[in-house]
Amino acid sequence: MPDLDKRAELLRAVVGYLEDNGVSDLSLAPMAEALGTSKRMLLYYFGDRGGLLSQALDAARPDAGEIFADVTTEEEFVAAGRTLWRAITRGEQRRSVKMMLQVLSLASTDPDTYQQYARMTVEVMLGPIAAALVALGHPRADARVRATLVVSGLRGLCQDGLVTAQRTRVDAAAELVIAAAVAPVR
């Protein structure tokens, strides 16, 4: 029977390792050594390399479902969008953004290995944001398009911010992206 506390502690360590070392050359043996455990224990708690990566990505991303759960007005949507932006640029998830960007990039060059993780990374953010937009009265297809604007727009701005370190300009652009998601179409 797995020790759930040990598993949670190990998952936090795995996420930290991937944030520091990236995912492109992920090998369980060096990771296990760096974490003071064994490859066998990583496999015991996470299944295989793919299971480990999937669970690390899940643990590292902000909970968009929670952030957008109680949105009933456009103002609340904008506030939720700002909360998400702060989480991925200043909060706990800011370090994991590099890991997420790497997985998304690797999906285009090594789709057999990374595409399923990249799709999941996008979908788990799109779903809750689109649901909030549907709750605001947007048709489902339009809500998915608007949610795509938020997810892809903020992700691109994260990358811009990491590359340029121009926080003021990037934060202002994030405000525009979030506002555009609820703006009427002309």
Rank of each mutant, 00 (worst) to 15 (best):
M1V: 14
M1Q: 15
D3C: 08
L4D: 11
A8C: 04
E9D: 10
L10A: 03
L11S: 01
A13S: 13
A13W: 01
V15P: 00
G16V: 03
Y17Q: 08
Y17E: 10
D20V: 13
D20I: 09
N21I: 02
N21E: 11
L26G: 01
P30H: 06
P30M: 03
A32E: 05
G36N: 08
T37Y: 01
T37A: 05
S38D: 04
S38I: 06
K39D: 07
R40I: 10
M41L: 14
M41Y: 07
M41F: 05
L42S: 02
L43Y: 06
Y44D: 04
Y44R: 11
Y45E: 00
F46K: 00
D48H: 10
G50S: 13
G50I: 07
G50V: 08
L52S: 02
A56F: 03
A59W: 07
A59L: 07
A60C: 15
R61F: 07
R61S: 10
D63H: 06
D63P: 00
A64D: 06
G65W: 05
E66M: 13
E66C: 09
E66S: 15
I67N: 01
F68Q: 02
A69C: 12
V71E: 01
E75K: 12
E76L: 11
F77E: 05
A80E: 06
R82V: 08
R82Q: 13
R86M: 05
A87T: 12
I88H: 00
I88L: 09
R90T: 10
R90P: 00
R90N: 09
R90M: 09
E92L: 13
E92Q: 12
R94W: 05
M99I: 07
Q102A: 04
Q102E: 15
V103P: 01
L106Y: 05
L106F: 05
S108F: 12
T109L: 09
T113A: 13
T113G: 09
T113L: 08
Y114N: 06
Q115D: 10
Q116T: 12
R119I: 14
M120H: 14
T121A: 15
V122M: 12
V124L: 11
M125W: 01
M125C: 08
P128Q: 06
I129T: 05
A131G: 07
A131Q: 09
A131P: 02
A132I: 04
L133D: 01
V134Q: 10
V134P: 01
L136Q: 02
G137C: 10
P139M: 13
R140H: 14
R140D: 15
A141E: 14
A143G: 09
R144E: 15
R144H: 14
V145M: 12
A147T: 05
T148W: 03
T148I: 02
V150F: 02
V151P: 00
S152Y: 03
L154M: 09
R155Q: 07
G156L: 03
L157E: 01
L157T: 03
L157Q: 00
D160F: 07
D160C: 04
G161I: 03
L162P: 00
T164W: 05
A165D: 12
A165Q: 13
Q166E: 15
Q166H: 11
R167L: 11
R167P: 01
R169V: 15
R169E: 15
V170F: 02
V170T: 15
A172R: 12
A172Y: 06
A173H: 10
E175P: 05
E175A: 11
V177C: 07
A180S: 14
A181K: 02
P184T: 08
P184G: 04
P184A: 12
R186A: 14
R186H: 14
